[in-house]
Amino acid sequence: MTTWTSPAISSMRLERPRSLAHALDLLEADRGLTPMAGCTDLYVGIHFGSLKQRRFLDLQPLASLRKIQKRPDGTLVLGALVTYSQCLDSPLVARALPMLASAAKEIGGVQIRNRGTLGGNLGNASPAGDTLPVFLAADATVVLASARGVRRVPISQFFLGYRKTARRHNELITEIEVPPIAGKQWFRKVGTRAANAISKVVAAGVRGEGITFALGAVAPVAMRAYAAECALGSALPLSEAHRALRSEITPIDDLRSTAAYRARTACALLTQFWSETR
């Protein structure tokens, strides 16, 4: 027995806030309100009828969230509405977080990069989100605002499960703070094709005083590979790092790839990261 139906636009509502404060008030008042930014993911869900939500909060009017800044302490502050195209064009990003520029370059085509936002990528929390490993490897902090105040969540604690984040219903992702990074940054995406692709495996890493390595699409959430980092840091042979990595990832078979391929490619990426950041 099968039910066939898809939602009608006319049954949906869009709230258009005048200011950030107004947006936060609206969120406080309505648990079922879904923030909407570049719509590059959300509109696919609407079109194919797979989206459950009916009420949306339009973030486009919030121009203050579109800035890329650098604080005196060297922290790079990326507004939630910063687009991938902005990341590509920004000298600040190029200097402080080149692996984000690398990620942005491989997302979608120009059309998607002009619309898709960093906040959307984080909030959507797809395990294959391309900027997520970048922020994980950068030890970024997600800034969440609500009518009651501001909360800072380390990115390592932000992703709770498959498409689940630490954002509460009354909160908005307003900014991502990236501390100064010492060391070589590295990024690689392995997609279903050379452009307009969803990642089969995506990885970002930093090698300096410390080592960070993060992966997407090999677990229900984008994740730091702590055990592999540790193995690399203790100068164990690469095969040990691979063993560690395989123990901490939980890849699956899906429409785009297989668990076996994801696991072997995650290891191969770790090797490549290690040899290219020497």
């Binding site: 027995m1 099968t2 039910t3 066939w4 139906t5 898809s6 939602p7 009608a8 636009i9 006319s10 049954s11 009828g49």
Partner: peptide, 13 residues
């Protein structure tokens, strides 16, 4: 279009 899309049909197979 919306009215058409929202019609729910159940098939017994």
């Amino acid at each position: 279009r919306d009215a058409l899309a929202s019609v729910a049909v159940e098939l017994r197979e």
